[in-house]
Design a protein around this nucleic acid. Structure first.
Lengths: 148, 148
DNA sequence: GCCATATAGTCAACCAGCTTGACCATCTCA
DNA sequence: TGAGATGGTCAAGCTGGTTGACTATATGGC
């Protein structure tokens, strides 16, 4: 593959990622969850299963512990998460989503589905699945850079 | 397509975009072009063909004119572009890439090719092209959000 | 058991990149 | 030709990140 083709692929990928980010953000806001930024969404993704510590979150987002801590302050203040004592480590605190945090996560899923729907109209269900599978094979679950 | 599948697709797309951005950035740096950020790359993409004005650049990047102007200051100071009087409008200035700016653009293409190469090993040339074509149909040439 | 060292988290100060608001020069068009 | 629109810059302020210093708790060799 020539350099210019690789560049076209890269540009297209980044353009789609940018639009998707924007669309999800708007969709989440439209569902009544305001004052959030993309980074919050990525934080939710990390906290969703069983919660996590500030340090884990920092690693996941690729920022310092201090920045992650501020971000947690923010989502706690807005009612999306809460800090609990960590069951195994008295130094640490376990940050878990509140019900509102879960609701926001579901809203993000809906918004994502809404954003992706037109792709199926454009390419067909089959090809969209192929797209997803290809991308999943490229980045099994890489750490996610805040874009949203 | 279910919400959770759409979310998986979105997450994969954003993860790949993040990795790609990082890889291109590193590749450009490794080729001797330092002190640049993703936003600069997107600016280059807009300026490359025939140059452009600060206002056009601002629209392309989705930031204010002032921010775009600062960014131009920066790439001018670092020798990647220069401001010329605009041929048709005495208010405006045409920002064009210098030879070093073009060299940097070529370096970015090489880095992109390098980043994409492993995908072909993983999926095959054919599927990578399908990926590119699918993405290009989704975002013909949407404005690009600074991610790099 | 005990101490040296590593790790989780926070506080404080600072910095970079972007925004808003005000402004001047030039263009456009009724 | 004059009123309003547009291109660009200057200045001040905000926000989200950084680095550095510190406390509290955990871990592992002795």
């Amino acid at each position: 593959m020539q350099n210019s083709e690789a560049m076209a692929l890269s540009a297209a990928l980044l353009a789609v990622a940018g639009e998707l980010t924007q669309h999800i953000h708007d969709g989440v806001e439209a569902r009544g969850f305001e004052g959030l930024r993309p980074a919050h969404g990525f934080a939710f993704a990390r906290l969703a299963p069983d919660g996590g510590t500030v340090t884990e979150l920092a690693a996941h987002l690729g920022v310092t512990k201090q920045a992650a801590s501020q971000l947690v302050d923010e989502i706690v203040r807005k009612g999306y998460a809460e800090r609990r004592p960590h069951p195994d480590d008295a130094r640490a605190r376990l940050v878990v989503l509140t019900e509102r945090g879960w609701a926001c996560t579901r809203a993000a899923e809906e918004a994502a589905a809404e954003a992706v729907r037109p792709w199926a109209d454009l390419l067909g269900e089959r090809e969209v699945r192929a797209l997803r599978d290809g991308l999943l094979r490229i980045a099994p679950y890489g750490p996610i850079k805040p874009i949203w």
